[in-house]
Design a protein around this nucleic acid. Structure first.
Lengths: 249, 249
DNA sequence: AATATTGTTGCATAAACTGGCAAAAAGTGG
DNA sequence: CCACTTTTTGCCAGTTTATGCAACAATATT
């Protein structure tokens, strides 16, 4: 059995049963547990499953139990969110994707800000709702369980009918040459539509992702106007972006 | 059983029943009480539950020094939710409104149920998302802040395009002569659309609301098929409804 | 206060993980 | 086809994690 074949099988099992045990997989496929472990490790690195002691869990299973993620990058994200929040002005229409950085932004919005936020990300919407002066518009469609965001033709069509002043994208990967990319096909379609519908596109990313690439391409860097990381604007690591004509904050 | 899996189970139990006993968990899952204690300890460290002598409590329970009245009604709602849950079958399309009774229903859905839920109620959607086998479709539109439900022409139009097998309405007021009524204009428009789009309409209401009237009319009792309260079906208080041809559960 | 239940601590064991190594298989480039 | 690299896989030794057990401390209950 080929490696890819085996991993595809594992992935199917995980999505089907929400969990797998290394030991049982080893029996089913007749390879050593070491190999299974390596497979699970790789799948987990790509974010396809959640590795745990003794096996692995599906995202949908794990998420419901672990809504608050790690905190080690939390500080970075707060810095990013604060910078992003400063771009929003009263009366604006703001389109946002999902992701933990966006969540942080939602929590950090000044209480007196009066703006309209449009999103399909459930966690983000829930945060926006806490805010006293923000209007929230929900993009409807079927929810993708692992990203907790509405995806599909309906959602894309709806976004197409919007003219937003500002669009915040929490990006999975960005690269000066290759542009913005992501690992979830459906989410990428949404992001593309959001970029189309916005006057100004702002990407939020932690610095360590600013030279990475993921499988699905979203847009070239030329399509975005502003990049926000936790680093100060002048940091040499971000020089390429400034050179490419991107505003770096 | 994996450790995380077990902890997820415990967490679910806590949120469902507001409390758990180490001893009963130990029996249910067949692990030693030591292990349960360790799990509870970890969950408590992450702030997900409140550890107490002999077991654990949910946050919501412990946080607010709940007025006793609420707990009393809470039990009623659980009874109602359980009855409602029994009506749902695999593969069904289910349309739901918002409200605390609906929330209770969402929490009580059996884990192996495979159905599609359509709703515009944010709290309800969040609950549905916790469920491993349920597909969730969001009705998009602007959110009404106090009811936390999407309302407006978009939402109504969208519901119009759906053919649901079942519709659960958490009702504010119902009366044999005057029918179902509510106090929020926007929400009423939605409920009307939901009733139109469903094969079968089920109203969930605590018994004390079954002879009340609110300002905005939703539909006559003839438009609903089933009424669920916390009382047993034969209760004299519900006799009018049975006489009016409504199925009472 | 007496008794029963629950917690705590330390320890033992088995299962799972880690990193390194080596052999087999597959791919590369003349 | 032959050397050579890379990938894949299994195995091993040492480490970590998960879990149950037992003895004792702390806390409820009557």
């Amino acid at each position: 059995m080929l490696k890819k074949e085996r991993q595809a099988y594992i992935l199917r099992q995980v999505n089907l049963h929400n969990k797998v045990l290394s030991s049982s997989l080893s029996n089913e496929i007749n390879v050593s547990e070491d190999t299974i472990r390596r497979d699970l490790h790789e799948l987990a690195e790509d974010g396809r499953i959640i590795k745990v002691h003794g096996g692995a869990l599906s995202h949908s299973f794990h998420d419901l139990y672990n809504p608050l993620g790690n905190i080690y990058l939390h500080d970075h994200k707060k810095i990013i969110a604060a910078k992003a929040a400063s771009l929003i002005e009263d009366g604006m229409y703001v389109l946002t994707s999902g992701g933990t950085t966006i969540l942080e932004l939602a929590r950090m919005l000044p209480p007196d800000l009066k703006a309209t936020f449009v999103s399909g990300s459930l966690p983000a919407i829930v945060e926006y709702l806490q805010h006293p002066n923000i209007e929230v518009i929900v993009i409807g469609d079927k929810i993708s369980k692992n990203s907790r965001i509405t995806v599909g033709g309906e959602a894309i069509a709806k976004i197409g009918h919007i003219r937003a002043d500002l669009c915040f994208l929490g990006v999975d990967a960005i690269h000066v040459q290759h542009g913005v990319s992501d690992s979830d096909w459906d989410v990428v379609q949404l992001k593309k539509a959001m970029i189309e519908s916005s006057q100004k596109v702002v990407c939020l990313s932690i610095a360590e992702k600013t030279s990475t690439i993921k499988p699905v391409h979203v847009c070239p860097v030329g399509s975005i106007h502003t990049l926000i990381t936790e680093l100060p604007p002048g940091d040499p690591a971000l020089q390429h972006y400034t050179n490419a004509g991107i505003e770096v904050l």
